[in-house]
Amino acid sequence: MNSIQFGNKIIYYTLKESNNRKTLSISVNQSGINVVSPPNVSIDKIEDILFKKGPWIIKQLSDFQEMQETSKLKSFVSGEKLPYLGRHYRLKIMKTNQSTPTLHFHKGRFYGEVHHSCSEEEYRTLLRPLYIEWVKRKADTFTKDRLKPFTLKLKKEPTSVMIKDQEQRWGSCTSEGRLLLNWRIFLAPASIVDYVIAHELAHLVHLNHSKEYWDTVRMLLPDYEDRKEWLRLKGSTLDV
């Protein structure tokens, strides 16, 4: 394991040589920094490149740390933050005499109401389904607005849009033209939601993953590869 110092931070990285590389590759993920170098590149040169990339590397590491901290399964207790479209909003729990729990969002904060006899161990069971329903409602309106620029470019529209609980997929498009989106994707930033929408809309033209299909995705979102990579690296954190 190698390391380099940025200010008062010591950053560790793994280094591997590859005969297939002509330039230095730097990637950041949950495990840390991985560097793949062409043969015979000196450590001094590698670390000089890493130092110049320092602000970007630190930002990537910070993003991963925030995602890991905020993506732990929630207990739905006061003070926790609940995600929506890449932002995180504080939850406040209030005890009431009402037998039915409620959850609402007001001025940048979630408010949950539970019966005064409920223990904290019960909060997740009571409030998580209400939170998911809230996300689905918001996501339905958000998606309909977000579709417009894509359908204008594609000159095709889905027959319907549904926000669902899909364990294995971020989205799907049926042969009948129905767009199905996983509610969890709406915990990610809007740019990542756009990628999933574009990915599924392209199936209105190509029900496969051919070169023509990916050309269609690129037409809708020229930088789709960056968004696809974000989802590959951080998608596992999108849950509560």
Rank of each mutant, 00 (worst) to 15 (best):
G112I: 11
W183V: 02
L220P: 01
T14W: 02
H203G: 02
L130F: 09
K107I: 09
T159F: 06
M94K: 15
A188H: 03
L15P: 00
G171S: 01
Q60M: 04
E212R: 05
K136R: 12
L201A: 03
N208E: 10
C173D: 05
H88V: 00
L207W: 14
S236E: 10
R124Q: 11
I4L: 08
V161P: 00
T96H: 13
Y84A: 09
P158R: 12
V161D: 03
V28I: 15
Y13G: 04
I192R: 04
L127K: 10
Q68M: 15
E66M: 12
A202P: 07
F150H: 08
G235P: 08
D223F: 05
L231E: 10
S18N: 07
D63C: 05
Y89G: 11
W230Y: 06
S62P: 01
S175C: 00
D44V: 13
H203W: 10
K211P: 03
K92Y: 09
I192N: 05
R178Q: 12
R109D: 00
V161Y: 08
R227M: 03
K107W: 04
K148G: 00
I49C: 02
I197H: 01
S117P: 01
I43M: 12
E80G: 14
K74C: 10
E80W: 07
P129S: 14
T174E: 00
L126E: 03
I93R: 10
L233N: 14
I58D: 05
F186G: 02
K144H: 15
E122G: 04
E157H: 07
L238H: 07
I57S: 05
Y111T: 12
E121W: 04
E122S: 09
F105I: 10
M67C: 04
F110I: 13
S62I: 12
L61E: 06
I4N: 01
S119I: 14
S99F: 09
L204N: 07
A198P: 07
E167S: 15
R218Y: 06
V35K: 04
S62C: 06
H106Y: 11
N8K: 13
S27K: 15
H115L: 09
W170F: 05
C118Y: 09
A198T: 08
